[in-house]
């Protein structure tokens, strides 16, 4: 169970760490904790898997990764496990999920990739298709980003 202090620390960690030689010390002072306590807790959160990743969130579009398609795959149910594992093993794939099919979109595995050009995406999708033996797939490119933020937990609306 998370204590109120744990939640207060999580709220701090989901903000932006100050760019300062001792960022955790600054957070500690704001929470009335010692720097050692904060470091111990953050490590614990990471070990327990509450923190999936500690670090910088980048705007990948500004780094030149402008092509960000979802590649969706129509996979027979008995092959979902095998195909899902294989697609996930591509280093360029950042997300891979099984999801329900929609009326106008009968695809059940969703992968996300990020690349510099659309051509690279088509090429990669083709390679992926050959590896998993699934020919029915499509690329849904993002044309516009309306929102991209990090989730803020334990902030009741």
């Amino acid at each position: 169970m998370l204590s109120e202090l744990d939640k207060a620390l999580i709220r701090k960690l989901q903000e932006d760490l100050p760019v300062h030689p001792q960022p955790f010390k600054i957070i500690a002072e704001q929470l009335g904790m010692s720097e050692e306590q904060v470091l111990k807790k953050v490590k614990e959160f990471k070990e327990k898997g509450y923190i999936r990743r500690m670090g910088a969130a980048l705007r990948h579009r500004r780094m030149g990764l402008k092509a960000n398609p979802m590649i969706i795959w129509q996979v027979p149910s008995e092959k979902v496990e095998e195909v899902g594992q294989k697609l996930a093993s591509f280093p360029q794939v950042t997300h891979c999920y099984e999801r329900p099919m929609l009326p106008k979109l009968p695809y059940n595995i969703y992968t996300m990739i990020h690349a510099e050009t659309e051509e690279q995406c088509f090429q990669l999708a083709k390679e992926m298709s050959q590896v998993v033996g699934i020919e029915n797939y499509r690329l849904l490119f993002s044309e516009k980003e309306f929102k991209k933020t990090s989730m803020r937990y334990f902030v009741e609306e």
């Binding site: 998370l2 999580i10 960690l13 989901q14 903000e15 932006d16 760490l17 760019v19 960022p23 953050v42 959160f45 327990k48 898997g49 509450y50 923190i51 999936r52 990743r53 500690m54 670090g55 910088a56 969130a57 980048l58 705007r59 500004r62 780094m63 991209k148 990090s150 989730m151 937990y153 334990f154």
Partner: peptide, 21 residues
């Protein structure tokens, strides 16, 4: 990098399922 907007923020990325969301 922060001024240029390449780094959006530095912090923790939490696992929503582990936090019961």
């Amino acid at each position: 990098f922060k001024d240029e907007g390449i780094i959006r923020r530095i912090g923790g990325v939490f696992d929503s399922r582990k936090l019961k969301y």
